[in-house]
Amino acid sequence: MSVGRKGEPVLPDLAELCRIHEIGIDLIERSHDVDELLDRVLEEYEKRLSELPADALDARQATTRPESQQKLRALVMFATQATALREKAVAASELKRRAAMLEEANARLTAALGEAERARARLDGVLAALSAGVMIRGSDGAFLRANAAARGLVGEDDDPALTRLIASGVPRDGEAEIDLPSRGGRRTLLVARRAMAKDPGSEVILVTDVTQRNHAVEERVRLEKLAEVLKTLSVLSHKINNPLTALLGRAQMLQVKKGTDPGVAKAASVIEESSLRIADLIRELAQVVKEGRQEALDDLLDMNGTAETASDGSRS
């Protein structure tokens, strides 16, 4: 044991140094776990406090025995070592907790990315299966995605011509028909723009080729009109036919009646001839109505127009 000038030990004896060393090693080993470290520290405190003489911590005592002072110094040395280690252990525990949180967040992020990738693959599958063109445009105006149908309808997905057309002719969250030149003439595309719910700056653009549909609509309207015309002709033919029959009958009667003035008989002959022409025309009209074709009606009108012109020419 080292002894100072006044006979007090200045250093703990060798046994105490060894003990402190062993405890220090033990504490360091346990310092990765704050709870375990604290348990060990409390245990050691109890042991050392029980070894400490009662007067060692008594501030009221003017002097304490050297042995008490030595044990107190040893306790303070241990306590200093223990508190420093505990602080490090608390910090290490906090780091560990945060590292675990980061790892968990990273795992969640990875899972979310995987899910997003799967969702993207599903979206690609759905888009590919759609016959309508679907394009997704980001808030910066760039086309992010276009399915095969869209590329087929409007060319490349970053087609500047389409961008201009959409900007000029289709309102946001609205739709409009756009005519585009094509090899076989012009084609009509129905373009609808819809803002994306979760990102209003971005939008989904749906493109459908309505050229055929528009032709079909026009044809349906034409056929409806033709049907109306033919129905009118049918009614008129029927209404004309009744007085015409009476007219023809009277004209024929006048011709065969004895004592009829020759001038009247000739006029009756002209009336009969004209009535027969009208009757022929009505029969042709009835045939056209029966066929129900535009071409038949056009032929009839052409034929009668030609006949009328010829007739006019012969009269003049």
């Binding site: 709870d35 604290l38 348990d39 409390l42 405190y45 109890e46 406090l49 029980s50 400490l52 003489p53 009662a54 007067d55 060692a56 911590l57 008594d58 009221r60």
Partner: peptide, 19 residues
């Protein structure tokens, strides 16, 4: 007002007991 090493030992025991 006053506590010595034995008294501190009591406090340590209470602390350990709660843990």
């Amino acid at each position: 007002e006053f506590i010595d090493s034995a008294g501190i030992g009591v406090l340590v025991a209470l602390f350990k007991n709660a843990r």
